[in-house]
Design a protein around this nucleic acid. Structure first.
Lengths: 215, 215
DNA sequence: CCGCATCCTCATGGATACTG
DNA sequence: CAGTATCCATGAGGATGCGG
C-alpha cells in the first residue's frame, strides 16, 4: 500500500485506501460482478501481474474486496464486500465528472464493453445532487452540430449555443452511450434510434468535447 | 502528470487527471476558496514544494484550476474552474464512503479545521443516491455504547446492535462533527448539545469504527 | 493454463537546499 | 515567498519463472 497522507480527513483516508494506482479501476471491474484473476487482467490492460496481486492484497486487507475459493476446484474469485460495493457512489460521480473528457472520442485508447456497462447507470441515473456535469454527446444532423443531453433514460437534442432543439432522440442507453463511445455509428443503429419532432436525418454521431463545459 | 491508463472509460480518464497523488487534496483545499501557494502548503502537510508546483501545473493544464495574479502586487492565487468545482460531487461521495475510517478517531494524524469544513456539508447533505454509507459516531452514554447516526441536520442515537434508542441528539453540525473528529469532548460542548427522550447523561463521545459497516 | 512471486529498469515521489 | 534543482528512496511496468 502506498504511503498514508496521515490526515484526519475523510477524503485523505479514503484515498489512503483507494487512491493508489489501479485500485479504483479494480473496483470498477468488480462492480460488474465477482471476477477471477485472469478476468481482472483482461479488463485492466497494462496492469502488471505483481501490481494486481499487490493491490488485491491491499484491498482485501482494507475490507474492500473478498477473496473466495470457488465451490468447485481451486479457482480464486474476487468480489466486493458491501462496503466496497458502496464505492459505486464515488465512482459514478467521477464518471459523470469526466464526461467532457469522453466527448473527444476514444482516440487511440482501447475500449471494452465492460466499461460502458459501468458508465451507463452512472450517466443515466444521475444523482440529483449538486450541479453535476451534464453528459454531452455531439451529433451531426444535416451538417449542423448539436449536443445530445442525456438524462433520465432519454436524450434531448440542443444546439451547440445552448438553445434547445424541438426534437428528442430515443434509444436504448447502450446505444446512446455506444454513440458517445464512437464504437457505434449512426449507420449501425439508425434503426434503433428514433428522433421525434424533427425531420432532419442524423448523419453522424461523434464524441465531442464541449469547451464550454470545461471553462 | 502520471502515466495515463489509456482506457476509453470515464473513470480512467477522470483518474488520469485527478488520480495522481495529492491532486484531490489540492482540490479539497480550493473548495474552501481561492488560495495562495503558501496556504496550500499549510493545508497539505507533508507535500513537497516541487510536487505541489508540479500538481498545480498539471491541474491548470487540465482545466481544473486557474492561476490568477492578484489585483495588487505579484501575488499568485489559485482557484477552481467551474469544471473543477464540480469535483465536489466525487469528493463528497468519497468522504461519505470513508466514514467508517473516521470513527476510529484521529490517532496520530493531524487535524485541521479546514478539512472539517469540507466534511460537514458532505456528511449533513447526503445525496439521496444509491446506498451511501451512513455516517456513524460512537457515543458512550452511562457506559453503554451507542451509534450516532447523522442525517439531514439532525442526529439519531441507536444501539450498537441496530435497535433505535428513543432519543435524539441535537447540536450544531460543527459540534457533531467535532465530536466525531475527537477534537471536541463532551465536557467542551455539553451545553451545546441536547438529548431528548432519554435521561441518561452523555459521558463521552468518541470516534468509533463500526465493524458491521465494513463487513 | 492460472495465480503469483522474483528480478530488473526506469519513472515518479519525497525531502532538502537553493535561486529569482 | 513562489518556485526550481538536486539527490535518494520507492513504486510502476515488463519479463520471466515456478508450483499447482
Amino acid at each position: 500500500m502506498g504511503r498514508s497522507y496521515q490526515q484526519y480527513c475523510g477524503l485523505a483516508r479514503a484515498l489512503d485506501i483507494v487512491g493508489d494506482r489501479w485500485n479504483l479501476l479494480i473496483v470498477r471491474q468488480l462492480l460488474l460482478g465477482p471476477a477471477r484473476n485472469r478476468e481482472l487482467m483482461d479488463g485492466l490492460p497494462g496492469v502488471a501481474t505483481n501490481l494486481l496481486a499487490d493491490r488485491l492484497r491491499d484491498l482485501q486487507a482494507a475490507g474492500v474486496i473478498e477473496r473466495q475459493l470457488a465451490p468447485e476446484g481451486n479457482a480464486v474469485v474476487y468480489s466486493l464486500t458491501p462496503w466496497g460495493a458502496q464505492l459505486r457512489g464515488p465512482i459514478d460521480e467521477l464518471i459523470r465528472w469526466a464526461t467532457p473528457l469522453m466527448t473527444s472520442g476514444p482516440g487511440r485508447d482501447p475500449f471494452l464493453p465492460d466499461w460502458l456497462a459501468v458508465a451507463v447507470p452512472a450517466l443515466l441515473n444521475p444523482a440529483p445532487t449538486s450541479e453535476s456535469a451534464t453528459p454531452e454527446v455531439g451529433l451531426d444532423i444535416n451538417g449542423q452540430v448539436f449536443d445530445l443531453r442525456i438524462a433520465n433514460g432519454g436524450a434531448t437534442i440542443v444546439r451547440h449555443d445552448g438553445r434547445a432543439l424541438d426534437a428528442t432522440l430515443r434509444a436504448e442507453p447502450t446505444i446512446i452511450l455506444g454513440l458517445a463511445a464512437g464504437v457505434l455509428s449512426i449507420d449501425d443503429v439508425h434503426d434503433a434510434i428514433e428522433i421525434d419532432g424533427d425531420e432532419g436525418a442524423v448523419r453522424t454521431a461523434f464524441a465531442r468535447r464541449p469547451e464550454t463545459t470545461r471553462t
